[in-house]
Design a protein around this nucleic acid. Structure first.
Length: 427
RNA sequence: GUGCUCGUAGCUUAAUUGGUUAAAGCGCCAGGCUGUGGCCCUGGAGAGUACGGGUUCAAGCCCCGUCGAGCACCCCA
């Protein structure tokens, strides 16, 4: 009897070998850009104290209320599988005294995150994100630069029709006032709102603004806008962010209703989308913003900061959708076929020598039939096959077969690496 | 978490609508010269129909539950 199959947990997926090239490509581009802009890599633990997120992201947020994988350890600690990267980075910044480094501190990361959500295309319970954070800098030019970095990464990955949505959601000075305005506006219209929005009214009235229910939209469209009620400082700050974006001539839209699902954001918030059927289905490719209050909330000094994160799977699925290919995929050049026990033995050693020379070589040592080995070599697309038979092994020779022409020559075995080197250098 | 659709070999699909031991293509393995690939030919392995139960003489097709996928809501990377 066969055992029952074990399925993977909901929303978890394997990154299979055939998809690794996309992940690797994204990683490479992210790293290259991080290096260029002088960001340093940081890896934070996958598990954090639950409080980091409940305090940092905000108790009333959906992420904290219903989307966290949390548990109690044997020792009695409450831990959570990290649902996002900013709070952990801020925690690390505080914990390691990075405020004593030259400011700003620029960090990047690339890793898995977890949210207990109902899975859908581009939405997983374990998903990969890369993020950039600049801590200790208030200047709006950095907000623009963060957006520039993410935009450049997506461009570098050959994505097109990108749309940037930006907004400012104010700070501690002006947001409470705006919140009052919004409250009184919705309070008088509470009866006309949908059920969810009535709940949101209590928990997070900003969310009513992007409700999709028609009657709510109608009401929301008349609601006061945060950008009309920013305090002087926030207004100036945002104005400059937009000026910098204009300077970069990025395709951005002011989206007055854009709010984000995490409480720590202040001032600039942004999301980047790809404008196609598939892109709309996937949602934001990148999201982020300024979080000037977070570090203090987490017990550090008042420190301004901006950052953002990109969704790897969403980008991968667009790359596949658009059939984006990348040159320089590693090609099979040399295959070593062997025949007989002596040849097999010599093959092991020969492969070692190729390795030392940095020449890639494929083989199928487990197979005995030459025919099967050639077939494999063909399938792998090898340019040359080295054939080491019993006779050759005895004579210290090896056959070099050009797979395209079928021409073969015998070469002394101690000359073979040299010969191959010449062959693959000038294609 | 709610509602809807879906789930057949590794992959893509078929199965006369409830009727023999679930079929094919691709892929995989082997053979067609005891040392030569791409084409072709032959054969083989591989599913008991996501899982568990029920109805029926009979279930891949009907019913229930569970799991998984997708869509919408919700929310976001």
């Amino acid at each position: 009897m066969t055992q029952a199959k074990i399925q993977r947990p909901s929303g978890m997926h394997d990154v299979l070998p055939e998809d690794q090239k996309y992940f690797q490509k994204i990683f490479d581009v992210v790293k290259e850009i991080a290096d260029f802009y002088n960001f340093q890599k940081i890896d934070t633990p996958i598990l954090e104290k639950t409080e980091l997120f409940s305090r940092g992201i905000g108790l009333a947020t959906d992420i904290v209320q219903k989307e966290m994988f949390s548990f109690k350890t044997k020792g009695g600690d409450y831990l959570t599988l990290r649902p996002e990267g900013t709070a952990p980075v801020a925690r690390a910044y505080i914990e390691h005294g990075m405020q004593n480094l030259p400011q700003p501190v620029k960090l990047w990361y690339f890793g898995p995150f977890f949210r207990y959500e109902k899975p859908q295309a581009g939405r997983y319970r374990q998903f990969w994100q890369f993020g950039f954070e600049v801590l200790g800098e208030e200047n709006p030019v950095i907000d623009a630069q963060i957006i520039q970095i993410f935009f450049n990464i997506l461009k570098e990955l050959k994505l097109e029709n990108l749309v940037i949505k930006v907004n400012s959601i104010g700070d501690r000075a002006c947001r409470p006032y705006y919140k009052k305005l919004l409250n009184s506006y919705f309070k008088s219209r509470l009866e006309s709102l949908c059920r969810d929005c009535r709940r949101r009214f209590k928990e997070n009235p900003f969310r009513i603004l992007d409700c999709k229910v028609e009657k709510c939209q109608t009401i929301a469209s008349q609601a006061p806008l945060i950008i009309d009620h920013l305090c002087q400082a926030c207004h100036e700050h945002f104005k400059e962010v937009l000026e910098f974006l204009d300077e970069l001539s990025f395709p951005y839209h002011l989206e007055p209703h854009l709010v984000r699902g995490l409480d720590y954001y202040t001032r600039t918030v942004f999301e980047i989308f790809e404008d196609s059927e598939e892109g709309k289905k996937l949602g934001a490719l990148v999201g982020g913003g300024r979080y000037d209050g977070l570090i203090k909330i987490l017990g550090g000094k008042e420190t301004p900061a901006v950052g953002g994160a990109g969704g790897v799977e969403r980008i991968v699925s667009l790359m596949k959708e658009k059939a984006i290919r990348f040159p320089r995929e590693k090609k099979t050049e040399i295959f070593l076929a062997q025949l007989g026990f002596l040849a097999k033995r010599k093959s092991l050693k020969l492969i070692e020598e190729f390795r030392k020379e940095g020449i890639n070589i494929f083989e199928s040592l487990g197979r005995d039939s030459l025919k099967a080995q050639l077939k494999l070599a063909d399938k792998l697309g090898a340019k040359y096959t080295l054939i080491l038979g019993q006779k050759e092994a005895l004579d210290n020779e090896i056959i070099l077969r050009d797979m395209a022409s079928g021409r073969q020559e015998k070469i002394k075995i101690d000359k073979i690496i040299e010969t191959i080197k010449k062959k693959i250098k000038k294609p």
